[in-house]
Amino acid sequence: MSLVLLIEQVLNGLQSGVMLFLMAAGLTLVFGVMGLINLAHGSLYMVGAFAAAATAAATGSFLLALIASLAAAAAAGAVIELAVIRRLYNRDHLDQVLATFALILIFSEGTRWLFGSFPLFLDVPSYLSGAVTLPFGIQYPLYRLTIIGVGLAVAVALFLLVSRTRLGIRIRAGESDREMIAALGVDISRLYTVVFALGAALAGLAGAMVGAIQSVQVGMGEPVLILAFVVIVIGGIGSIKGALVGSLLVGLTDTLGGFLLPQAFGLFMDASSATSIGSALASMLIYILMAGVLIFRPSGLFGRA
């Protein structure tokens, strides 16, 4: 095992971590502010990816595709918030889970109906394809590096938005006391729609960016949604800082586990069984991490007890 390979895997872990952060940030914001668990967040990720793939196929511009993914996911988010989600804020979590599960069925089958069952492809644009040479002579795809950059930039922007702007003040106020800020004259239902659309846009962006390295297909959102749940449980619900730390932990654990465990088992058993046991265990690693965090901090690393 060479150092170069290890650094490459760390970068891959970072890349999947920052994309997870885009998903987890929206989920955790929506939960923190509105107290809502939204399973359909994965569908918004899918909407973003499909909007990007369709736009890229029509115009050939990757930048337009990204803008389309943001716009389509935000619009879809705003529509479902106005039509369905706002009826769920005062319901118990069971109703929220079921209603958003129903939304997943509608989104998935609707997308299948519009685009068919075959995966679409979104190509990395020529100016972002190819590899760059990093220190130590590491060759790394430029596009994945761009993803890491975009993800970190969004994270910084989100921190600034929440801590420095008026919208951010309202979001934080909404988290701690929604009656009070309504009494102070803030239009709380519009605030909720904006927060929901913002979370949706982040999910859509993640879907589009990841869609260019994987295929764009129906059902692509749910595995990421469940990973984002693991992230939130680790980081603590409602905490954006927790979402960032949790995302990076999960991204790195998942990638490095899949890479290192089979090799570690290879030290004391034959290659084929080491690969099978190692990869089976690696697929469970993030859940073991989650269980470990729960034993010591039941409300997550940065959660309020």
Binding site: F31, I37, H93, V97, I226, F229, V230, I232, V233, I237, S283, M284, Y287, M290, L294, I295, P298, S299, G300
Partner: peptide, 18 residues
């Protein structure tokens, strides 16, 4: 069961996924 509410929903989901 060390947790409740939304955490419980997400954790049971995650374990099944595991």
């Amino acid at each position: 069961l060390r947790t409740s509410g939304v955490y419980f929903i997400m954790i049971t989901l995650a374990f099944a996924q595991m």
